[in-house]
Design a protein around this nucleic acid. Sequence first.
DNA 1: GCAGAATACGAGCGATCGCTCGTATTCGCT
DNA 2: AGCGAATACGAGCGATCGCTCGTATTCTGC
Lengths: 207, 207
Amino acid sequence: MARRPATKPRKHASQQRSRATVDALVEATARILVREGFDSASTNRIAEQAGVSVGSLYQYFPGKEALVAAVIARHKQDLMRVARGVLAEVEGLPLKQAVRKMVTAGVKAHSHDPQLHRVLAEQMPRTGKLGNVDVFDPENYALFKRYLESRRSEIRALDLDLAAFVCVTSIESLTHTAVLHHSATFSEEAMQALIDEATRLIVRYLQ
Amino acid sequence: MARRPATKPRKHASQQRSRATVDALVEATARILVREGFDSASTNRIAEQAGVSVGSLYQYFPGKEALVAAVIARHKQDLMRVARGVLAEVEGLPLKQAVRKMVTAGVKAHSHDPQLHRVLAEQMPRTGKLGNVDVFDPENYALFKRYLESRRSEIRALDLDLAAFVCVTSIESLTHTAVLHHSATFSEEAMQALIDEATRLIVRYLQ
DNA sequence: GCAGAATACGAGCGATCGCTCGTATTCGCT
DNA sequence: AGCGAATACGAGCGATCGCTCGTATTCTGC
């Protein structure tokens, strides 16, 4: 069990040059996932695309999984920023307006880098414990539940955890499916119609 | 462009012995997908598990993709059988009872071989044109739309295509997520509560 | 019973993958 | 300017993968 002398710095980067390397690697991974698919995303290919050597890649990432995990984390942060934003913006608003804004935000979130979103949602082998991508972040349920609590007077009596699950899952799947699987079938106005319907779905359910 | 003499029988099996081989291969693929994950499903591994040689495998399947596609097709047929069954059973029933049966069927469908369903839904790289698994079969929309048409007097005036999309997508995602991601959190009675909520969601939306 | 077609076999090929490690370069610091 | 640490490099190892092909076995029809 001899300590490694000075080896295995394989984690944090101190100089700014290495920060750039790390960023380039994550960005390259995302680009390749989008443009060439998961199967083509080999470590050699990623390093090449990033303009970096494989060796450098392995100085900062223990393996391919870690690269992909970094991309996922970055994308997830983007989505959660949107979610937190709309929930804050909606605070104090009556049910109908609030739900409409949330649904619209759902569409917007899925329209932001939809290609990457699609790859992450559809092509990711969730193998090896680390990979539970779930766009359904628990935080989403919590945020929505908090809003429901603040509007208890407007909704019928029900289990808020269950209600949050039903609403968040429905909104997410409707917007996800519409944007990613039927973007051809849904024109701009058709998308508005969908937003209307989704809003009605949720509001009438809660009342 | 010389015609192949007698080569490339790589398709149909005539003798019953070869039928057995094909079945064993598909079954083995499903088992390995479930028990060892997509990444471990190599052609050699599949052939071994099926008690068959790789050579035989390639006599009937052009490649790994085809094996997986066969598994998907089989599973899809199972699910569609359930869907057609419940839609027939529900014909003529009033809205509330019908929707409840459909939701219940959704739960049941996802509970049938849930491990395989999970692998197919989550681990499948939808690469190479052939792989669009989509549990959302267009037929599902059509079946549901047909029911709605037969019950037009009970529902408000709306675009039935859009309504079918909203309902089918919601029911599917709710049951899918509940069974596959929260089976721990949803006890038997909690699942009943979920069915109640989902039913209410859809019925109130349509009325 | 036998010929030929159908089926099954499995060693091993070429390609590719994830990853290592010895070496070269650049940075931070005095 | 000069030194050690940090960073970057990339040829290439070992493992594995999908798949082929020459051969062995089994079935079918006469």
